[in-house]
Every structure is written in structure tokens, then in C-alpha cells.
Design a binder for these strands. Structure first.
Lengths: 263, 263
DNA sequence: AACCCCGTTTGGTGATACCGAACAAGACCT
DNA sequence: AGGTCTTGTTCGGTATCACCAAACGGGGTT
């Protein structure tokens, strides 16, 4: 019996793949970390294998451990903080946009975010938390659905219909919140309105009770390189203030675009 | 001939170690990325090995590639942005401190940073860039010398002399800038003044032309959990304004400490 | 004091990570 | 345009090593 050598297994380094499983397990392990046995069971490998991987990562600073002996726990190390900072800086967009994002958060009084396009998905690479006590989805680097977020729709609105259809064809239109757009024609209509208006609105399309308003950022060639958005709780955002906030977000996106040499 | 099985090689997963070499090479590869051959030569392995590692990392989102064929280049992927955000959030300190750091940057008009202690070194986990056009050492997650930075000295000043001697014994007092303190007794004297004053001053001790002022943050048990600092160019900071800025930094550090239940 | 459960260590073996060499295809120069 | 060089990609063989199972030893709890 030839073991099913899937084509997907070509050029796959198995032990590295396992180590990445360990890393992702630790990422979800939270602040207090995971014990060796916990790591081994969650990723489905033997204790001793997990131990070797952890020791290797530990020596390189990719994981940190607290305690020793029977109470030892492992969590992700600060090397990831360094590498993550390198990645989000590498686009160059962040350095330019963040000061404006801070100003936007201060003026609007709302949490604002900066995202880029990554294979059809929206990925946040910067964020400024607002004064509100409630912190909403503060994740950087995680793929978010383009059709269900203001930041994603703002970017989609800069593309023509065919490109949008290609992206949605690959990703689909999965429902996320109460008002998620699940029909391609409705989405295209929404994107046309977004383009006219200059900003996108996510009205509980991703998360119940949360509304976002976003606008796209272009480079000197006129292509979209990212988008910014502000996030608010539904009851904080009345219908009339949506237009006000929208104009604000559109203006800051335009300023960043100008800095990049666009428009 | 038994190959020298160094004790350091115990519990070392060689292929994972090689993969980490690749990751670090890509981190220094900058925005434009590295080609397969470049990766192989910089880490000292064969082209095909590097290729397999890159493909494995690629499939998991840990590296991204642009182009294909003879012009293909690899750089770190957005998974690191996600994991780095997880790490810097995990301390819990950042969520509380960042809003105050933003306010400090706005009031002082200077870049400010938040750092924690990591095995004797100071490691920044948050940063707010000031309005100045010059961006100084914006790295997060990188180990910085405790005796040559305001943020490090602020944290050292909360320890007693014996603990400081232990840390410096392990790290040493390497010179970094024109005024780096290279003598343990001078350092201890500086730390005593820092403790009295409530803030630490780095006057071109790490980088020529750059001055920093920092203050420590304590938790409810009174132990130091981190520090904040502001950074300025030497010619921006006159002697009289140093005391003014120092009082400001000390006040914000105190506010964060209070939020944590300290003092 | 006996038990249990954890992290750590060890040894053996089957899988596999690594390398060298070959292939294909753009880029560059003449 | 043609030739050549370099690059990314593919392939096969072998010595290496990643993986597991089982044993060890020490805290904490009963």
C-alpha cells in the first residue's frame, strides 16, 4: 500500500509543520500559557516530541517559559513581537498612516484601524483604541471577510465588477452578522453606492451590535493599497452621525492617499 | 569518530532550527524580500532545503511570496503580525497603558514607548510615534540594554543593589553611545538618583544625539512590571524642559500604576 | 506514607530531511 | 535575435534524525 502521497505533501517539512502547530496552539493558550502535556494533546503528538520542539523554540526566544518542574508553562516569546512589528512596518503604509489614524481616533472618539489587502481578505496592520471601555475585535494580522466589513468593502469598491466576482468566487459570501450581504448582486450594488459616497458602511454585517465606517487608501498609480475604518457600537451611532463620521473617515483616507502621492 | 554531540544539541530539532534561521533571514530581508538562492546562501544550506522550508511556511501563511519563476521573492507573512499582536497583548499591561501613552505623546509632542522586563533586558511592547518627522528606533520586541536606556534604568531603579549587580553581572556594561555608563558604581549612583527623582534620564547613553526620559510602572504588589518613556533629539530638549518632561512622564507612569492597583 | 500526575530523560527504528544534480524558463548581454 | 547565464523548481538516494513508547524522579495531594 503506497501511503497516499497527496500532492499537498510535496515540499512539506513535516517536523516544521508540527512546530507551527505548536506555535499556533500557544497563541491560543492565552496569558497563562500551556503545559507540555497540554501542548502534546492539543496538537496530537507525543509528549517527548512536543518537549523537543518547545526546547528548540525556547533557545531561540520564540517561546518563553515560566516556572520549572511540574508547574512549568510555555507561551509565545517576544521574538514574535519583533517579527510582527517588522512585518507590519514592511508595507511602508503603516508609518505614514498611523499618525493620521491617531488623529482620527481623537477627533471621532472611536477605535480606528488600518488594513491591507491579502489574497482577497482584509488584514488589519494597525489600530488605535478609542476611549470607550469596550474593546472590539482588537486583532491584528487576522484575515477578515471582505464582504462583511467596512474596511473590506471600501477596498472592494475600488475594483471593477469582474475583479470583485473573482474574489467572491474564491471566498464566497458566508453570513457573519444579522445583516451580512449574502447575494453577489446586492453586494455589487452596495459597492457602487460606496464608491459614489466615498466611504463604506458595515451595519451589523460582521458582528451584531457593531457598526463600522471605512474608506480606501490609494497609491500614486491609483490602485488601492489599503483602507481605514472606525468602529462603534450600534447605539452610539445615530443615522445622522453616520454621514458625519463617514465624511471624516473619507477625509482622513484622502489625506493619507495624498501623502502617498495618489489621486 | 563520534561527532561532538554537544550538550547544547540535546532536545534540538535540527530542521526546526534551520527553519528559524530562514525566518530570521527573511526578517532582515526587508520590504522587497529574498530569493530562494539568497536565503540558502545566507543561512548556509542547499537550495532545495530552503525551498522546502519556504513552501511549508508559505502554506501556513508564515511567509508570503510575490512573483513567480526567476523573479520570485519571499518575505515574512502576516501570520507573524497576528502572533506578535497576541504576544504584546498577553501581558495585559499594554491594553491598560496604551491610551495613556497616546495622551502622553500628544501632550509632550514626543514619541513614547512602553516596555517590560525580559531576563534583564528592556523590551518595548508598544509605541506611539510623535509628530516629529524623525523616527527613532521604532522596533518592538527587541532586547535593549537596561543600563543604557531610560526605560531600562527606570526599571532597574526599582530593584535593590544586589539584584542590579546580578543582572549587570550577566549582561555587562557595554558602551553604546557617547555617555554610556560603563561603571557599576556610577550606575548604582545614577539609579539612586533616579529613584529619588521618580524618572530616569538617558542623555546620549544609547544613541548619539538622542535623549530619553522614562519612569517605571508597578503592579499592586509593588513590583515593577514595566516602564514608559519619551524620546527626543538632543537639541529639542533643553535642560529646563527635561525636568518638566520628567514630571510629566512620572505622572503618567503613576496613573498607569494606579490603574493596575499599585502604589 | 503511598499514590498520582507532572516534566524530563533515554534508546531504538522507521520515516524523512538534506543534498547534489538535472531540468526549464526568463533575463541579460552581445 | 541568438546565445548564455542565472534563477526557480524537480527528483532520487542515503545517512540522519524526528518520533514514539516506556521509564525515571520529584511535588502535591490524599
Amino acid at each position: 500500500m503506497t501511503p497516499n502521497t497527496d500532492n499537498a505533501d510535496k515540499y512539506r517539512v513535516k517536523s516544521l509543520d508540527h512546530a507551527l502547530d505548536v506555535v499556533e496552539a500557544l497563541a491560543h493558550g492565552g496569558r497563562e500559557g500551556l503545559a507540555v502535556t497540554e501542548v502534546a494533546t492539543t496538537v496530537g503528538m507525543s509528549k517527548s516530541s512536543a518537549y523537543s520542539i518547545l526546547q528548540t523554540l525556547l533557545r531561540r526566544g520564540f517561546v518563553a517559559s515560566q516556572g520549572t518542574g511540574p508547574t512549568r508553562r510555555y507561551r509565545l516569546g517576544l521574538s514574535f513581537a519583533y517579527l510582527g512589528d517588522q512585518v507590519t512596518s514592511q508595507t511602508g503604509l503603516r508609518e505614514i498612516a498611523m499618525p493620521y489614524l491617531e488623529e482620527l481616533t481623537r477627533v471621532a472618539g472611536l477605535t480606528s484601524r488600518l488594513a491591507i489587502f491579502d489574497e482577497g481578505y482584509a488584514v488589519a496592520i494597525g489600530r488605535i483604541d478609542g476611549p470607550g471601555t469596550i474593546r472590539i475585535a482588537p486583532f491584528l494580522g487576522r484575515r477578515e471577510l471582505p464582504h462583511a466589513t467596512a474596511i473590506g468593502k471600501a477596498m472592494l469598491a475600488t475594483l471593477d465588477d469582474e475583479e470583485v466576482r473573482a474574489i467572491i468566487g474564491a471566498i464566497g459570501l458566508p453570513a457573519r452578522g444579522p445583516n451580512t450581504i449574502v447575494d453577489i448582486d446586492t453586494l455589487l450594488h452596495d459597492l457602487h453606492r460606496t464608491a459614489e459616497r466615498g466611504y463604506a458602511i458595515d451595519d451589523e454585517e460582521d458582528t451584531a451590535g457593531v457598526v463600522c465606517i471605512g474608506a480606501s487608501v490609494l497609491d500614486r498609480t491609483g490602485t488601492c493599497v489599503g483602507a481605514i475604518s472606525v468602529t462603534a457600537l450600534k447605539h452610539e451611532m445615530r443615522a445622522d452621525s453616520a454621514a458625519e463620521i463617514g465624511a471624516l473617515v473619507r477625509r482622513y483616507a484622502g489625506t493619507i492617499t495624498t501623502e502617498l502621492g495618489g489621486r
